[in-house]
């Protein structure tokens, strides 16, 4: 009985370790392909449009409303201590250091990451990836590397947009609705927000882009059979990428700030 239980635990540990190893090797393969020619510039541009441009609306909406909620909640908390003048720095620092990179990454995971997994999964089950291999081509260069490069370029830009729209949303609530001075809001933001806050957020978003692409492509590449396999892979990709983003965010925060 005890032996059976130990055997099961051992099996789970071995299975998990081998899955981590496979994912690690997959990432290594992406990096090697990304660093060596030939690069597919046009495909990278296409993917920037898909991951970046097509995410602008959702990023603008979530960024704006996140800033507005932060301003509402922050104002009431700060006014209890008579510190409502610090609403601008509160909103800006929360967004730039933390919420901007994380929420933007979660939004892109849901919108683009899931689509990448489904797309690659369908290419896998309909043998399109095998067809590329049999032409003597490396499918990694066509379906994985362009996504990685595009995500690394698009994520910092989307995050910057999220931050700016969020700070503007906070301004809208703080100044127009709650009656704060606009000059105070902006002046305090400029005084307290430092370049290290901004660069830290940008570094985070860059690594989140790698995580989104890595997990989404891996799950699509190893999708099971049929529609059910692709659907399961898509769900797993979104869940795993979201969890990894939050876990990695903790480590990045503890190192960067």
């Amino acid at each position: 009985m005890l032996l059976d239980a130990l055997q099961k635990v051992g099996h789970i540990v071995l299975h998990s370790l081998s899955a981590v190893g496979r994912m690690g090797l997959f990432l290594l393969q992406i990096v090697v392909c990304a660093l060596t020619p030939p690069w597919k510039g046009r495909l990278v541009l296409n993917r920037i449009v898909f991951i970046g441009t097509q995410s602008v609306l959702v990023i603008a909406l979530t960024g704006g409303f996140t800033g507005m909620v932060l301003a509402l909640q922050g104002y009431h908390a700060l006014s209890r201590f008579g510190s409502d003048a610090f609403l601008g720095p509160l909103v800006a620092m929360s967004l730039v250091r933390e919420l901007g990179p994380v929420v933007a990454a979660l939004m892109v995971t849901g919108r683009a990451g899931s689509a990448i997994t489904a797309e690659i999964g369908i290419m896998r089950i309909s043998e399109q990836l095998d067809a590329m291999e049999l032409m003597g081509l490396n499918p990694f260069r066509y379906v994985v590397v362009p996504n990685l490069l595009a995500a690394m370029i698009a994520m910092p830009l989307l995050t910057a947009m999220f931050d700016v729209i969020g700070i503007w949303g906070g301004y809208l609530i703080g100044v127009r609705t709650l009656g704060m001075s606009g000059g105070t809001y902006l002046a305090e933001v400029a005084q307290y927000l430092e370049w290290s806050d901004i660069s830290g957020g940008i570094w985070k978003s860059l690594t989140f882009g790698v995580i989104i692409c890595w997990v989404s492509c891996y799950k699509g590449w190893h999708a099971g059979f049929g529609a059910e396999g692709v659907s399961r892979a898509t769900t797993q990709a979104v869940v795993l990428a979201s969890v990894l983003i939050l876990v990695w965010d903790y480590f990045m925060t503890s190192v960067l700030f």
Binding site: A131, E133, G136
Partner: peptide
């Protein structure tokens, strides 16, 4: 990959790239 360039493979389902036109599919290799 070099050896495979001497191969052709016709898959059961065709394995055509569904985002490309017929011309682009045949032109791809």
């Amino acid at each position: 990959r070099r050896l495979r360039r001497r191969f052709g493979f016709v898959f059961q389902g065709g394995a055509l790239f569904d985002s490309m036109t017929v011309l682009d599919n045949v032109a791809f290799p």
